[in-house]
Simulated scan of single mutants.
Amino acid sequence: MYSEVFISLRAQDLGYGRSLFERLLLCLQDNQDWCPISLNVQCRMHHAICSFPSAHFYNNMLLTDLALEHSKSQFSGPPYIVFDVKDSKEQCDEICSFQNPVEAQLAIITAEYLLQCGVLSVAVLTPYTAQCVCINRILRSSSRDRSCRIEVGKVEGFQGREKDAVVLSCVHANGEGSSTNIRPLDASQLNCTGFLHDKHQLNVALTRAKMSLIILGHLNTLMKFPLWNALITDARQRKVVVSTTEATIKRNIEMIFQERNPNGKSFGEGKHRDGKYHRCLVAKRKEGPPT
């Protein structure tokens, strides 16, 4: 459960963005008679997807059920990739809802490749209504049969849900595709970029996918925000960042989806941080802590 989405950063600073569940935990944290119990085995995500959320949202406590590994090993695509879309550019309407037509097009292309790799369900998620409209418009114009298996939605509406694969369109790109031509964010833009400041929404966005999570974003823009800076730094250290453009995305995807390392694993697939996996004691449980 996460709190309502606040546009006002001042309201967030005053604590109005804190959920009811968080408030309850804060009230009980000093009460020795009421010690909260955390569930630390997740039974949804591939361990490569789980790595960053575990480190930054769950104090490195999340473990992945071993039973998941065999089922997810049948998937031929990459479990976790961050595409740096160099030529994308955001557009903002009068109600401060953003869209990015380049990312919208690339999100559909990526989702279709994921379906070709054998996943049964794909969600394209984005924080903004305008981007949902843009993606759905492109999807409706497609005559491909796979289109009916691609669901488009906002991040905040996907709490508690899951898909085999998720494509996350971050939308924001306030430059011309060059690191030397990025405008600083003014006060009005900061108030319209609540998603980039909201760790709860980011946590939801990163933990919906079971087999594959593909992030599309303009990294020079996203790295201005501390949490996204940490995510991108982590992705670069894990060598899962791929630079792309509207013209090269198909070639980049084909290369990544076909690439294998000597162990036969997909591009970007690594071990859990301590090299071990924890087997879930309740074999029939479907979901772990992230909901």
Rank of each mutant, 00 (worst) to 15 (best):
residue 3 S to I: 00
residue 4 E to G: 04
residue 5 V to N: 12
residue 9 L to C: 01
residue 11 A to Q: 13
residue 12 Q to T: 11
residue 16 Y to N: 06
residue 20 L to G: 04
residue 25 L to I: 12
residue 32 Q to L: 14
residue 32 Q to P: 14
residue 33 D to C: 06
residue 34 W to P: 01
residue 35 C to E: 15
residue 36 P to D: 04
residue 37 I to Q: 13
residue 40 N to E: 12
residue 42 Q to G: 04
residue 44 R to L: 10
residue 44 R to K: 11
residue 47 H to S: 04
residue 47 H to M: 03
residue 48 A to C: 13
residue 50 C to R: 08
residue 50 C to K: 11
residue 50 C to P: 02
residue 50 C to Q: 11
residue 51 S to Q: 11
residue 54 S to I: 08
residue 56 H to Q: 05
residue 57 F to T: 01
residue 57 F to I: 07
residue 60 N to A: 09
residue 61 M to C: 05
residue 61 M to L: 15
residue 64 T to E: 00
residue 66 L to T: 13
residue 68 L to N: 10
residue 70 H to W: 07
residue 72 K to T: 12
residue 74 Q to T: 12
residue 75 F to R: 03
residue 77 G to H: 09
residue 80 Y to I: 06
residue 81 I to N: 14
residue 82 V to E: 05
residue 84 D to Y: 02
residue 84 D to P: 06
residue 90 E to N: 09
residue 92 C to H: 05
residue 92 C to D: 00
residue 93 D to T: 02
residue 95 I to H: 14
residue 95 I to P: 07
residue 97 S to Y: 05
residue 98 F to P: 07
residue 99 Q to I: 10
residue 101 P to H: 07
residue 102 V to L: 06
residue 104 A to E: 12
residue 104 A to M: 07
residue 105 Q to P: 01
residue 106 L to F: 02
residue 110 T to D: 10
residue 112 E to C: 02
residue 113 Y to D: 02
residue 116 Q to R: 15
residue 116 Q to P: 00
residue 117 C to R: 13
residue 117 C to S: 15
residue 120 L to D: 11
residue 128 Y to I: 04
residue 129 T to V: 11
residue 130 A to H: 08
residue 132 C to G: 03
residue 133 V to W: 01
residue 134 C to L: 10
residue 135 I to L: 04
residue 139 L to G: 06
residue 141 S to G: 08
residue 145 D to G: 01
residue 146 R to S: 06
residue 147 S to K: 14
residue 147 S to T: 13
residue 148 C to Y: 10
residue 148 C to I: 14
residue 149 R to G: 00
residue 155 V to A: 03
residue 155 V to H: 05
residue 155 V to D: 07
residue 157 G to E: 14
residue 161 R to K: 10
residue 164 D to I: 03
residue 164 D to L: 04
residue 169 S to Y: 04
residue 170 C to V: 05
residue 171 V to Y: 06
residue 172 H to F: 02
residue 172 H to D: 00
residue 182 I to N: 13
residue 189 Q to G: 04
residue 190 L to H: 08
residue 190 L to N: 14
residue 191 N to V: 05
residue 191 N to C: 12
residue 192 C to F: 02
residue 193 T to N: 15
residue 195 F to H: 07
residue 195 F to S: 03
residue 198 D to P: 15
residue 200 H to Q: 15
residue 201 Q to Y: 02
residue 201 Q to L: 13
residue 201 Q to P: 01
residue 206 L to I: 10
residue 206 L to R: 08
residue 209 A to I: 09
residue 210 K to A: 09
residue 210 K to F: 00
residue 210 K to I: 00
residue 211 M to F: 07
residue 212 S to Q: 07
residue 217 G to D: 02
residue 217 G to L: 05
residue 224 K to Q: 14
residue 224 K to L: 05
residue 226 P to A: 08
residue 226 P to W: 04
residue 228 W to Q: 05
residue 233 T to V: 00
residue 233 T to M: 09
residue 235 A to H: 05
residue 235 A to W: 04
residue 236 R to L: 04
residue 238 R to Q: 08
residue 239 K to H: 06
residue 241 V to Q: 10
residue 246 E to L: 03
residue 246 E to T: 06
residue 252 N to F: 01
residue 256 I to S: 10
residue 257 F to V: 12
residue 258 Q to K: 14
residue 260 R to T: 01
residue 261 N to D: 14
residue 264 G to K: 14
residue 267 F to N: 09
residue 270 G to C: 07
residue 274 D to E: 11
residue 274 D to R: 08
residue 279 R to A: 02
residue 280 C to N: 13
residue 280 C to S: 12
residue 283 A to E: 11
residue 287 E to C: 00
